[in-house]
Write a protein that binds this DNA or RNA. Structure first.
Lengths: 212, 212
DNA sequence: AGTTTTCTGTCAACTGCTTGACAATCGTGA
DNA sequence: TCACGATTGTCAAGCAGTTGACAGAAAACT
């Protein structure tokens, strides 16, 4: 079903389609065309039909896509039709914000283990979770069957923690550290770097009038 | 100098080069080859040379790139050789975390105006900044010459606030709301959506062994 | 029942990014 | 001073993703 050869950009767009369809559902829309979806997301209709066709023919000619049915399919394809236990490593400002972020549990992502190295924090409790030392990663992660980690540690610790996580069974890392992680085949990393995002925009602001 | 025709992917990689070079500088490295940079960032050497060549020949044949000189150039190109005043809209959990994020001021991004709609917050002070009501966007933003905004409002308010920001002169938006914003030509948006990032990884976790 | 309209799925053309290859250049050491 | 090893900048080829176009199918309308 989900062969390789689906370009990664298409997979990322799938998440956009998922959001847009949720919005349609909440507004009571039952059927939506690729055209309409495209207008919501600033994409061409052809793009959307192509992306969806990687996974099967979900639409009806002359009609469009059934919002409810397509949502089901996307939930299955993206794997959001289940609960994902996650580990959070690093309990600084950012770590705390992530721990309290409502969006994660709402979509089935649950932080079930928290790690930090600060001896003043280790052993104490946040949100009902005992804070573990990083050295316990190797024991706790496999025990809880965790395959996803949120990485919110200082840049200089990021690679070392990553190695521990991967050895413990983690296969997907949401990396908030401004560092390019080295990971083996089969491990997925997404970078969440607000500064990189800002700097890629200031480039255009400096370029100024020259438009794009 | 910075013509269009530079692909956006290349601009985004420029921010990676900038980080990698900072790291080189901090480790006392004076000269670096495209090969070495590529190994740090998991990119091909040809890719890096091509990207840099969009902006001029910064390297020396047989030698490589002078770390200090290239950093200067990148700072200029990316526009991080100055201070950028920013507006923060939305003071929830996330907004507070952004307000306290050290990384922004360290790289010259300074939050100089804060907006929210909660009447209990408006008029009070955080981090030495008076919280304004969203309705004051049109007055405050032009007065402070702000061209960058951090958007941390609920999804249903995002577009409406965006329209206000743009009318006030904002040209770059770091959007934390899981919503595709409609913006005119010449306005730049970067999406910061941890759920989208997670879901684009769970796709591969579900696909399972099939690798990529 | 037939005609028109709408909209999907897919093919092929197109566009744009990435990569390999190589001449040109620089420093080093004989 | 000359040869050698290293490394850039760039060209052209290759690859991948996007887009336009159209046949086929479904409903709506007449």
């Amino acid at each position: 079903m989900s062969l390789r050869s689906v370009p990664d950009v298409a997979v990322r767009r799938l998440t956009q389609y998922y959001r847009a369809l949720c919005s349609c559902r909440d507004r009571g829309i039952d059927v939506v065309s690729s055209q309409a979806l495209g207008e919501m997301l600033n994409l061409t209709a052809a793009q959307i039909r192509k992306d969806l066709s990687y996974f099967g023919g979900f639409g009806k000619q002359g009609i469009g896509y059934n919002v409810h049915a397509l949502l089901e399919q996307l939930r299955r394809i993206l794997g959001v039709d289940r609960t994902w236990p996650m580990a959070l490593v690093g309990l600084g400002n950012l770590g705390h914000a992530l721990l309290h972020y409502q969006g994660f549990p709402e979509e089935g992502f649950r932080i079930v283990a928290v790690f930090d190295t600060d001896p003043r924090k280790v052993g104490t409790t946040v949100q009902g979770l005992t804070i573990h030392d990083d050295s316990e990663i190797g024991e706790v992660i496999p025990r809880l069957g965790i395959r996803i980690a949120l990485l919110a540690v200082p840049p200089d610790k990021a690679q070392e923690v990553t190695d521990l996580l991967i050895r413990a069974g983690v296969r997907a890392i949401l990396n908030y550290a401004p560092v390019t992680l080295k990971v083996p085949e089969g491990v997925w990393v997404r970078q969440m770097d607000p500064l990189a995002a800002l700097e890629s925009m200031t480039y255009y602001l400096v370029a100024g009038g020259e438009r794009a």
